[in-house]
Design a protein around this nucleic acid. Structure first.
Lengths: 313, 313
DNA sequence: TTGTACGCGTTATCAT
DNA sequence: ATGATAACGCGTACAA
């Protein structure tokens, strides 16, 4: 008379055999008489046995066949933000190639503490974020993407500062002298530093500004340095609303080179970062019990239609 | 002298107290003298305790705070296919709102069998797929999206056949009589049935064809019924390559209304399905221990620039 | 080929 | 407030 759930034991008792044999029927078919095995499987089916409990199996074996990912901005961002989608595509490919599962961990709540994973990716988060702290406490193998730098843990990032500098230098070379910088200071600290360095070195006028205001400043900037393509695309929009032509009246440069950047009107000049490769690399590290590797991927200026020399009239 | 791993027991012994108190220090702070608690936490930190093991906790408590998703076409498709991205955005929102984690399960290998989840979403898969069979065997609460129909399990889908019929009727109403149908017969059985029904009822000429060939047939079809926007977009491409103007020489209609459909040249006429809403609904069912609910969401014809009356000359 | 015995790390229950 | 004990469901030496 069984109460409640059907387990290995239930089957074993129903058949008058040992649990070992039932376990073997599932995990080591060769250690078993085929005839017995099929009797076991038959009984299991008859009794509605759901198969060896994954949680118990995990506990016992100590292994886990899933890697986790903690993404700054929340779980839904994985499918919302084009740059994140691209990054995750890379990660997913590597994880899938290894035959593992990918766990998207919620940013808040008990997420990280309860995640049953062999390793955890951490992406675009402040070092003091509770999830990052929890990850550290759990002493999991970690792979950080972009943010934060965690000494002793694997890291995959890009040359943020150099890319930003490159963007500014492109506009400076075109002759621009008055700039608006659009960014989120805490999230884009490195990029901001890169802009600053190039701009100050050239003695240019610039100010960090919010988006609609940036275009209304007096004297009006002739170029916008946007820390992400999303912001750059928004700047294009704002320019249009303000009756400004891009690039004649205003140059705009972005950062990331998301798929939409090539399709905007005008197409966006931007700093390309290899999002897919970054993801694939992070994914490969994730499945390989990472240990402190650091990779900084290069970025590249992509000139399209949204930047041109300033026109004085 | 401890060997290997640090566990609850390690802490308890080091402090000469019971494991219960250590456990409570983590899970029931109120059941504990604050002074003892901080001593425990201190020792834990000192010894490098990683906190209660999630696998063990799961086993003991029987609860799981993650839902799984098995996606036809593989894990990477979640970030590759625009329609899937949209669907998953909806799912992720609902799952995140419930504070749960989302496990992307690999299609092949032991994926489903080893997934530690409270419920499993199954998306666009044939009924005989090993993953689906495994899910059934595990007796998990299931939420099927699109495919396959599984009696007794929750289902979220759309009016596939009606949508396809609507697409065909749109072209018929424009005066078309010769059609090429582009689809994957097994994956788009319902849509194919919808096309067939409308086309046959109208006595139109039509044939299912592969993409480059479809446009080369003699006499050339005046319209293409594509079972997905992806195929429709490819048809646009093929038409361009063949020197055909759309919609003057050839009308093309898609299915799904992915974001790219509105941006193509010409913009794609298509059958819109509410991918985001479908995902959100599936997600809500997933987190709510679903039990057999069935929802069929409506579709809608969206007329854009890729369809027009045929021109005879 | 099959069974015995033990342990995986935790939490619930009940007693103190 | 704290502790002893018993599961949870399973894997795997090892012995038979």
């Amino acid at each position: 008379v069984t109460s409640g759930r059907v387990t290995l034991k239930t089957i074993a008792e129903a058949l008058g055999i040992s649990r070992t044999s039932v376990s073997n029927a599932y995990n080591r078919p060769d250690q078993l008489a085929p005839e017995l095995r099929s009797r076991i499987l038959g009984k299991a089916d008859e009794l509605g046995y759901a198969g060896p409990d994954p949680a118990a199996r995990r506990l016992r074996s100590g292994r886990s066949d899933t890697v986790g990912l903690l993404l700054g901005g929340g779980l839904a961002r994985a499918f919302d933000d084009p740059a994140a989608v691209l990054l995750l595509r890379g990660i997913a490919r590597a994880v899938e190639a290894a035959g593992l599962a990918l766990l998207l961990v919620p940013e808040h709540g008990a997420g990280v503490r309860d995640a049953v994973v062999a390793a955890l990716g951490v992406c675009s988060l402040p070092a003091k974020h509770p999830g990052v702290q929890a990850a550290l406490e759990r002493r999991l193998p970690l792979v950080v993407v972009d943010q934060p730098r965690l000494p002793g843990h694997a890291y995959v990032g890009i040359d943020e500062r150099g890319g930003a500098r490159r963007a500014a230098e492109h506009l400076l070379a075109l002759g621009h002298r008055r700039f608006a910088v659009v960014c989120e200071p805490q999230a884009h600290r490195e990029r901001l530093a890169g802009y600053r360095r190039a701009l100050d070195a050239a003695g240019a006028d610039w100010a960090r500004q919010e988006l609609p205001a940036a275009l209304a400043a007096e004297p009006r900037p002739t170029a916008v340095l946007a820390a992400t393509d999303r912001l750059a695309l928004a700047a294009l929009e704002a320019a249009r609303d303000a009756g400004l032509r891009v690039p004649e009246d205003l140059s705009v440069i972005g950062f990331d080179d998301v798929p939409g950047a090539a399709r905007s009107l005008p197409a966006l000049t931007t700093i390309r970062q290899p999002l897919l490769e970054k993801g694939e690399l992070a994914g490969r590290l994730l499945v390989a019990a990472p240990s402190g590797q650091v990779a900084i991927l290069p970025v590249e200026l992509v000139v399209r239609g949204s930047t041109a020399p300033p026109s004085y009239y």
